[in-house]
Simulated assay, not measured.
Amino acid sequence: MRTLTLRGGARVAVVAAHWRDAFGVVTRGRVQLELRDGQLGPVLGRDAGFWLRGTGVRALRNPGRRTATVRIATRHGRRIPDATPPTPVTESWRIDMQSMNETGDVVADPASDRTRHPRRLRGLAGIGVLATLAAMVATTLAAALARALGVDFEIPDGGEAIPLPGFAVVTGFFSVVGVLIAVAFLRWSARPAERFGCTAVTLTAISLVPPFLVRANTATIIALLGLHLVAAAVMIPALARSLRVRAESGVSQISGISGA
C-alpha cells in the first residue's frame, strides 16, 4: 500500500500500465480527474474510491490549496513505480524524489507553471464571442421594437434619447466582461459552471438597479429592465452550458468511481 500526496495545485500524470491493477481511495482533501482530452472531470472527496483502468484519465490534480492524499492498493501487492521516464505526457509534471519519506510515500509538487488548457479556454471564448454577438443583436432588435411601440428611451439627466447603436455597444461590453469571468472560473475553479451561474445571476440583479436611478419615464424604465434580462437570457445559459460541457465532458465514460 502506497500513499500519493498531492500538494495544492499539484498535477501527476497517470501512466496506464502502472494503474492497471491499482485501486485508490482519497483519504484527505480533494482529487480531480483530468480526462484524456485535457478537460477536467469529477472532483473526488474524502473516502471516494476509484480505479483508472480503461477510463482514459491522464492525470490526477489537486484543485484546492490544501494537501490531498490518496492511498493506493495493488493486486498481489504489486507496487506502482515511484517515478517514470519523461514522456510527452509526463513532461508537464515532476516528482520530487527527495521528498519521499521512509515509508516510500510519493509527494508530488506543482510545477512552476501550472498546466494550462488553451484549447478548452479558446473553445469557451469562441462560444462567448458568438453569444455576445447574439446578445447584441437581440437587445438592439428588442430596443427597436420598444421604440416602435412608443418608448422614447429619453434620459432626463442627459436630455437625449439613447440611440439604438448604444444598446449594442453597452451589451457587447458587459457581455465580454461576462466571458472573461467565465474563462477565469474555468481556469481556476473546480466547479466553474455553478460558480459562474451564481455570479452571473447576482450581477444581473445588480444591473437592474441603475434604470431606477435615471429618473426616466415608466415605459423607458420597464424597457431598460427588459433589455437587461434579454441580454442575460442569451449570455448566461450559453456560457454556463459551455462551462458544464468543458468541465464534465467525458464523465459518463469514466467507470469504477464510487463515493464521488
Rank of each mutant, 00 (worst) to 15 (best):
L4K: 00
T5Q: 02
G8D: 05
G8W: 01
V26Y: 00
R28E: 14
G29H: 02
R30N: 08
Q32W: 07
Q32I: 08
L35N: 01
L35S: 01
R36P: 02
G41S: 14
V43F: 11
G64E: 09
R65F: 10
R65E: 15
R65A: 15
R66N: 13
T69A: 09
I72W: 00
H76K: 12
G77M: 09
R78S: 09
P81Y: 13
D82N: 08
D82T: 11
T84F: 07
E91I: 15
R94A: 08
Q98N: 10
M100W: 03
D105M: 07
D109N: 11
P110M: 06
A111L: 14
S112V: 05
S112T: 06
R114F: 12
T115E: 12
T115Y: 09
R116L: 15
P118L: 14
R119A: 15
R119M: 12
L121A: 13
I127V: 15
V129H: 06
A131N: 01
A131H: 02
L133S: 03
A135G: 05
A135Q: 02
A143R: 03
A143S: 05
A146P: 04
R147G: 05
A148Y: 08
F153Y: 08
E154F: 05
E154Y: 05
D157R: 13
D157G: 09
E160I: 13
A161S: 15
L164Q: 12
L164T: 11
F167W: 10
F167M: 12
V169Q: 10
G172V: 05
S175T: 09
V176Y: 04
V176I: 13
V179E: 00
I181E: 07
A184L: 13
F185P: 03
T199C: 15
A205R: 07
L208Q: 12
P211N: 08
A219C: 05
T220S: 09
A223Y: 04
L224D: 02
L225N: 11
H228F: 04
V230N: 06
A232P: 03
A233V: 14
V234T: 06
P237S: 13
L239Y: 01
R241S: 13
S242I: 00
S242K: 00
L243N: 02
L243K: 01
V245R: 07
G250F: 01
S252C: 06
Q253M: 12
I254S: 02
S255P: 02
S255I: 07
G259T: 06
